[in-house]
Structure formats: C-alpha cells, structure tokens
Simulated assay, not measured.
Amino acid sequence: MQNKDQKYDSRFIRKSLRFSPSEYSKVEAQLTTLGVNFSNFAKNAIINHQITIPIQMDLIYELNRIGNNLNQIAKSINSSEKIAVLTQLVEIEKQLQKLQYKQEI
C-alpha cells in the first residue's frame, strides 16, 4: 500500500510559497474573512486573477525614440530624401538590437 505522500506526489504538482510574517498575517486575515483554507484560496488567487507586469520606463523611452525616428522617416520619404531615410533606418535597427539585448539580459 502506498503512503499518503507517494499517492499525492504521483497525481499532483506541489509548489511552495514563502511569506514574511507580515505578509502571512495578511493572508491569514483574508482566509478568516473568506472562510476558506489556504489551498483553495491560493488556487483561486493564482488562476482567477491577472498578473500585472511592472512598466520598464527605459524601454518605453527607447520605443518612443524609435517612434520619433519612424515619423522622421515618413516625413523624409514624403519629401524624397532617400539617403536620410536609409540613415534613419540603420539607426532604428541599432536601437532595436540594443532593446533586444536588454531583454535577453
């Protein structure tokens, strides 16, 4: 006969969380208020709530610069300055490579 841990380990994926004492007291207060156990509370919180990703202002700044360059390119194309357009396209490509490098780090 299998023991309890082996039975659950073969059927379920187990994850653990760590809380500071102040964080856990907040969790316990919510558990008491809602009248649920921790497992159900955690599953519901993880599955049913969207995660917000912090905004990286440096990336927004870089994207803004790229947008400005694209606007300059559009203006140059309309005024038929072909060499300036190619120069700006090369600059945008360099900026995109820098952004890609930042994301890989």
Results as ranks from 00 to 15, higher is better:
residue 9 D to I: 04
residue 89 L to Q: 05
residue 26 K to Q: 13
residue 1 M to V: 04
residue 39 S to P: 00
residue 9 D to Q: 08
residue 1 M to K: 09
residue 26 K to L: 14
residue 8 Y to C: 08
residue 40 N to H: 02
residue 79 S to Q: 14
residue 23 E to C: 02
residue 59 L to Q: 02
residue 7 K to W: 12
residue 40 N to D: 13
residue 60 I to R: 11
residue 92 I to K: 09
residue 64 N to D: 14
residue 90 V to T: 10
residue 83 I to E: 15
residue 78 N to R: 07
residue 5 D to Y: 02
residue 6 Q to D: 12
residue 2 Q to V: 09
residue 105 I to F: 04
residue 62 E to R: 02
residue 21 P to A: 11
residue 14 R to Q: 05
residue 55 I to F: 10
residue 31 L to K: 00
residue 70 L to D: 12
residue 67 G to P: 03
residue 21 P to E: 13
residue 87 T to A: 15
residue 101 Y to F: 10
residue 98 K to R: 11
residue 105 I to W: 01
residue 96 L to V: 01
residue 78 N to I: 03
residue 11 R to C: 09
residue 84 A to Q: 10
residue 82 K to M: 09
residue 43 K to T: 05
residue 74 A to C: 12
residue 99 L to P: 00
residue 58 D to S: 00
residue 76 S to V: 00
residue 15 K to T: 01
residue 99 L to S: 02
residue 90 V to D: 15
residue 72 Q to E: 08
residue 25 S to H: 13
residue 41 F to Y: 10
residue 29 A to G: 02
residue 26 K to H: 04
residue 69 N to T: 05
residue 3 N to T: 02
residue 62 E to C: 04
residue 54 P to Q: 03
residue 49 H to K: 10
residue 61 Y to Q: 10
residue 18 R to T: 03
residue 38 F to M: 04
residue 37 N to D: 11
residue 66 I to H: 05
residue 18 R to N: 10
residue 76 S to E: 07
residue 27 V to H: 08
residue 94 K to E: 14
residue 58 D to M: 04
residue 30 Q to K: 14
residue 91 E to T: 06
residue 73 I to S: 01
residue 29 A to N: 08
residue 19 F to P: 03
residue 58 D to I: 00
residue 28 E to K: 09
residue 71 N to P: 00
residue 105 I to G: 03
residue 22 S to R: 06
